[in-house]
Design a protein around this nucleic acid. Structure first.
Lengths: 255, 255
DNA sequence: CGAGAGCTTGAGGCATCTCAACGGTTGTGG
DNA sequence: CCACAACCGTTGAGATGCCTCAAGCTCTCG
């Protein structure tokens, strides 16, 4: 219960059992949803918003365009909160759907202020978590704006693995479950499914990674990192930053 | 003093003078920066982060890639807070620069929690403001992922005008100052400067808008809106949503 | 047994990129 | 005051990465 979320928050701040009690009190009861259902950010059909904390499973938020095309904004895994924006804004044009069956806690608009009063450490940790998710959106922007299709995909896969590790869902052996269809991946990376398929093949023939039956297999991690130009500073990792990464960032400042 | 920011927050919640006193107390003194200088999110060189509230002028945040290319993440105008993410995360790989000379208030990490204690309405309004800025990033993601170059530019210009109106910097007469070079626009929209230049021309020859000497001229607003497929629900406008917009959103739900 | 969804492949088109060049303006240093 | 560099906007010509259209294959489900 809240294993992933707790683990994630604890990488930010140590929390004690009183903190968790407050958190649970404000979250209410979890609900199970099947795969492929729409999630409604509108609370009780009113325009009061709500968000969802994912306890288990995968869900995603997206936007639809008038011509029917879709842009996936973020892909949520266990421990993520989706729809935080919907919570605060009056209007909402984001949509959300589950990709697997999921267990969700509903988050109402007042939760954050109540937590700030009762358990400020928890509130701060949650805000940190949503900042982290926001930086994933930023990274997606960089992906789509400035990286080629192969770079995008390689980068996305490495980031996903990193996120799964953060909540204890990846055992570190270069293979993980990823229940996302090629269509979803394409909609997340700003590509057509057809080109995404060819991009996967490209990474396969170059011996970097392969995908089969919803499982990602990283064949040559170094090569994949190299292709992606992966520098996961934005994930706010606990692990010490390598001298190499630091130097590169400083170069940018100098430049 | 804080005219733009105050105006923006007040579209969310009415604030009284006591609220503003608290806000000013926690913000400290404004500083003036010249155009084209780097802003440092690191407080005193330590890794404690800080953000900046723009009182006057334009600034932007961006990311640099190893190959030297740049993706502009968001463009800040008066009333915006830039670097909110840097405030909460331990590591930061976002860079920021001023495009005009600016007046900035520095925001330290503790400001939000202090405001939640002293003036919760203000804190909530600020959180609303940052949610709004986040939804601009999301909209940029949709731009770059799923819209053509002309659509992107048209959309961006309309959104910018809308934002300027929100803080009282546009008089509504279809013409506004926009001190952004074509290179900056290209880096924001995921295009090359060359293609951006041709895209501007395209919008000019079709009689939708023109740009000259840092001034944007909307020639045919209806045409521009049509090209962009503009539906600014995500800006959380106060103005009543038109029936037309509503219907379209509902179509999406049905679909 | 048919329908639908997901994955794969082929062929051709086009939107955008790359490389290259030029003029105007601004700032700078000799 | 001139020479020069640097930046910005503009245009041309050719290359290419990704898209569009089209089709077939497999698997699941009813």
């Amino acid at each position: 219960m809240l294993a992933a979320f707790g683990r994630k928050l604890q990488t930010h701040t140590p929390l004690d059992s009183a903190d968790f009690r407050h958190l649970l009190k404000h979250l209410g009861h979890p609900r199970v949803y099947p795969a492929r259902v729409e999630l409604d950010f509108r609370h009780d059909g009113s325009n009061r918003g709500r968000a969802f904390l994912i306890d288990e499973g995968w869900a995603l938020t997206y936007k639809l365009l008038p011509d029917g095309s879709r842009q996936v904004i973020d892909i949520g895994i266990a421990g993520d909160i989706i729809g935080m924006r919907a919570l605060l804004l009056r209007h909402n044009d984001l949509l959300a759907t589950t990709t697997t069956s999921v267990i969700l806690y509903e988050i109402e608009r007042t939760v954050l202020e109540n937590l700030y009063r009762d358990a400020p450490k928890v509130a701060a940790a949650i805000l940190w978590g949503t900042s982290l998710e926001e930086s994933l959106v930023v990274e997606r922007l960089v992906d789509i704006g400035r990286r080629s299709a192969v770079e995008r995909l390689a980068h996305f896969i490495l980031e996903l693995r990193h996120r799964l590790q953060l909540v204890g869902l990846d055992d570190g052996n270069l293979r993980f479950r990823c229940p996302l269809s090629q269509t979803v991946l394409a909609d997340a990376l700003g590509l057509t499914p057809i080109h995404l398929n060819r991009t996967i093949r490209q990474l396969r023939v170059m011996g970097a990674m392969r995908v089969h039956d919803g499982v990602v297999d990283i064949v040559d991690e170094a090569k994949l990192i190299d292709v992606a130009g992966y520098e996961p500073l934005y994930l706010d990792a606990i692990a010490p930053v390598t001298r190499n990464t630091l130097r590169k960032v400083e170069d940018h400042y100098v430049e």
